[in-house]
Design a protein around this nucleic acid. Structure first.
Lengths: 199, 199
DNA sequence: GTCTATATGGCGATAGAC
DNA sequence: GTCTATCGCCATATAGAC
């Protein structure tokens, strides 16, 4: 681990903030995680608010760019959607707390959302057309594609966000079984979306 | 407003906790909301933790009992599902922050989940069969009904939890238009579930 | 740049008058 | 039961030695 001090702080903050959110995180905890003193956090980032914004902006931008990247390949619209579902479930599985973290923070302080959008390089107009073009071209049933996008994202994110409850009442708290359930969802969600789009 | 002091505290706490969560809420803020002094909160509930648990337990139990009630009427399984979707969207629309609040708190401290389940009168076994029977009997495609339950809840909850982001990028921040979108989802989600269940 | 020590403020909780 | 005043703690932030 020969990364710079600033990078160590940033990485530690990223882990702690994602797990506990802005309010739940403690500067001391981040310092411990980074293996250094609390004062250094302020030396490099001046305030907790600053550190949080730096981290949040990056997480937000990275997740958006990953989504964008998935949709920018050179295959048919339907194939893009299928690839997106596979990749997105893998992406959340590798970062299970990120989507809920983003949802929480945009609800906690919706004001930051606009600047996040701009600074992340994700112009609203580009985001708007994301998904929608893919869906429109295959949408035999002429449904407002925004309903399909929202349904799709809900189906993908909820099993991760609601995991403690779902795993307990439907899987007798068997984490292994629940992991398998999450991977099964790739096929399930693809089938569901296809059936809906193709009328 | 001739309710008792304890009720006033409880109601105020409920509003504040739902909006800000356990960590974001301040006892002073709850006292202001209830129109009284901070010390009275401790006189009646001894600690913030106690007050929070009392509120959370009730919210959790009430949401579960509403869901249960919807599924206990005397109609066919398919009709029950359709009625459930209508009622659940109305229920969230009237309490838009509640589902995310529940999700946050069970993730923040999963230990409380078990006692919540028991004290809310919702035995896991009863919860398990909830939905599943309804879906199984109509499930021509023989899909694991848990996938359908999770998909359904995700489709219903996500448009509320992700509202700030979705409303901004897909509705140009037009709240009125977004409200209409939420009501349209009753038909959309019903169609989606039906198509899936009926193969 | 990195540390220890400390200042400053806010919050949960309590004491005690009425 | 309800209030004012205050305690004690913990978290962010800063001062200052090295």
């Amino acid at each position: 681990m020969d990364s710079s001090t600033e990078e160590k702080i940033y990485d530690a903050a990223r882990r702690i903030f994602i797990l506990k959110g802005m309010e739940g995180a403690r500067m001391q905890e981040i310092a411990d995680e980074a293996g250094m003193n609390k004062a250094l956090l302020h030396y490099y980032f001046r305030s907790k608010e600053n550190l949080f914004k730096a981290v949040f902006k990056d997480i937000f931008a990275k997740f958006f760019s990953r989504v964008k990247g998935t949709l920018n390949s050179d295959i048919t619209a339907k194939e893009k959607l299928m690839v997106f579902i596979d990749n997105y479930i893998d992406l959340i599985a590798a970062n299970p707390y990120v989507p809920q973290f983003i949802i929480n923070e945009i609800n906690r302080d919706p004001k930051v959302l606009k600047s996040m959008m701009l600074e992340s390089g994700a112009e609203p107009q580009m985001i708007l057309s994301m998904f929608l073009n893919e869906i429109q071209s295959n949408n035999a049933s002429k449904i407002d594609p925004r309903h399909i996008v929202v349904s799709l994202l809900g189906m993908l994110i909820f099993p991760f966000a609601g995991r403690p409850l779902l795993q307990m009442i439907y899987f007798n708290d068997d984490a292994q079984a629940y992991n398998q359930f999450l991977m099964e969802r790739k096929i399930i969600v693809k089938n569901m979306i296809l059936k809906f789009i193709e009328g």
